[in-house]
Design a protein around this nucleic acid. Structure first.
Lengths: 112, 112
DNA sequence: TCCATTTGATCGACATTATCGTATAAAATA
DNA sequence: TATTTTATACGATAATGTCGATCAAATGGA
């Protein structure tokens, strides 16, 4: 494939990282995501996607330091890059454009 | 996978069918799609996706009759089903919600 | 010190989607 | 009925989506 663009799940994960801002790492991302999309997803699913998004340059990450919590491995925090923001913006523009072009009666049937 | 939801490309194809309303078949869908998303896609790509969307119940189709045109095979027209409309609506709600939750400074960086 | 517990990240594998290139079908017309 | 035109169907491969299982690091006690 030549594409290497944003997949459907990749997009919501990227958005979720953006929403969490400074507090985005595996666990919080998974929780917020589940809450927003209304279904459960495995940690590994999210991690895999985060890794791919980083490879594509849409995310960057850094390891966090020790905290006051009980214990546990260090967190890897994620941040959306400028490229990532651009990609999000672009797909939104395309969809908004399509939604605007929908026939009125179709919109009505969806009650939105 | 248990999911079988709307993929990213499937979503724009479904939206395009909705936009074209009565005139949605392979060729017109491909053209409209290319125009909206700003890149070329093969007919076969679109056809494959249409078929999957129909299998999932998001689209229904019927064969068109003869026309006054030069010649050529009959067209298969597509229509979005109620289920399809619902799916479109739902993914939109999720994304809109996420966009609303973005921190202001992130939005600002995107200039939207 | 060192081990159990806690919290997260990483690996490997497989299912589903995205995408092409090529082949095939059907309609009109010469 | 052969040819041209317009479209759909098929087969194959790469990218994404999704898990289950494993590994890593930090901390509090024994």
């Amino acid at each position: 494939m030549k594409r290497a663009f944003l997949g459907e799940f990749e997009e919501v994960v990227l958005l979720t990282v953006a929403v969490l801002d400074e507090e985005a790492y595996g666990v919080t991302i998974t929780q917020e995501l589940e809450q927003k999309i209304g279904r459960a997803v495995g940690f590994s699913t999210v991690h895999t996607t985060l890794q791919r998004l980083e490879e594509k340059g849409y995310l960057s990450s850094r390891m966090g330091g020790a905290t006051a919590e009980r214990g546990g491995r260090r967190k890897r925090f994620f941040m959306v890059t400028a490229t990532g923001r651009k990609a999000l913006h672009e797909v939104k523009l395309v969809r908004d454009e399509l939604w605007r072009a929908l026939p009125p009666q179709t919109l009505q049937l969806m009650g939105s």
